[in-house]
Write a protein that binds this DNA or RNA. Structure first.
Lengths: 193, 193
DNA sequence: TTCTTCACTTCCATTTTGGAACTCGGTTAT
DNA sequence: ATAACCGAGTTCCAAAATGGAAGTGAAGAA
């Protein structure tokens, strides 16, 4: 029973992570490359042209070209002509791409909290409807309280359950406590705030 | 005035992105490497030992060793002995690491929405205080409404303002609308839901 | 004594990324 | 009408990161 492809797992290569039954791995297979999230940030900020992105991020045209091609293939960005004669293009977010906004927000939040020096944060997010500079929060849509890692659990969804029946692998626990033992160890290095 | 280091910018290498005045770039400099977020996911799920992580992710010990070393250096994880005689270690989240939970959540959400096939989502998140399987939402802590990308703006914070005075670069706009023109182009490819 | 487990290293091949220069269609400046 | 100048890339090669296989070393266990 050690035939490749018959339930025996080999090494995982990065370009195969989208085959994992894991939404994190699948998301990273689309936006987990170097530069990709920074390119998407630029497009959210209104920097949508090849040249502009290239100069803003200071990466090589080669890399940018690759990344944009991949983002268009994955339907995160769409390449649309903003001028004919001469034919010129820009990149716009699709619905799927727009839906990455929460990811942008939490990356900003963590960086603001843990990586900003004493000079303060780089940008402030403004919620136009209420006019305030805010730090968005994750809440439970049911009880409206703030999400705390220690109050969350993960349990197998349909895909993992199906897998558990279909092949030889079993789902060890029906309910895994998330971060349940993630207390600060007594000798933990102090992370700067 | 083309002396290196005197205001003239060169190419940006990936290991220099933490020098950008951008919280997204700074966050990615810590967790933007291949495998890093998946390792952190494992630790959140309670998979905390070298071997266990290695077998779960099927990466090489070399890579895992590198990543763990970096995460400990960056104070995301702490290496603590769970047994002496023989001396054995496990990796635990620090406060700084625990604070990456929102990032885990939004990666899961996006993957669930856009990458799950008809077999359904891999895992469901359960909010233990209210007992429901939920999909966390980002809200404005001020007016409690759901964050919509088109209702958000970014404006320079203290660090960018200081930079604008200090060196020659200017901040072009005081207020950049985020995603203001990110409408669906008419010929946009339909992203599968 | 040899075997196994955990937690890694070392060595080398493959893949990805980075740097520099070049292309190509169209436009404006002289 | 020719030269120079965009914007939006490509091509080619070198450097760095990653992947695969095998080895290490300390402590129990058989």
């Amino acid at each position: 029973m050690s035939v490749k492809g018959a339930g025996v797992v080999g090494k995982m290569r990065w370009n195969e992570i989208d085959t994992m039954t894991c939404s994190i791995a699948r998301t990273l297979s689309v936006v987990g490359d170097r530069w990709t999230m920074l390119i998407i940030r630029d497009v959210f900020l209104g920097i949508r042209r090849f040249d502009a992105i290239q100069h803003d991020l200071r990466l090589t045209p080669h890399r940018l070209s690759d990344r944009l091609r991949k983002l268009v293939r994955d339907e995160i960005l769409a390449r649309v002509a903003y001028e004919r004669h001469p034919h010129r293009f820009e990149y716009r977010l699709t619905r799927k791409g727009l839906d990455l906004y929460p990811l942008i927000v939490v990356l900003v939040e963590w960086g603001d909290r843990w990586m900003a020096g004493r000079e303060g944060v780089p940008v402030e997010l403004v919620h136009r409807p209420c006019g305030h500079s805010i730090r968005p929060e994750l809440i439970c849509p049911n009880c409206k309280s703030k999400i705390e890692p220690r109050e969350m659990s993960a349990r197998p969804g349909p895909a993992l359950k199906k897998r558990a029946l279909g092949d030889g692998t079993t789902v060890k626990q029906s309910r895994t406590k998330l971060a349940s033992q993630a207390q600060e160890p007594r000798d933990a290095p102090k992370a700067r705030v």
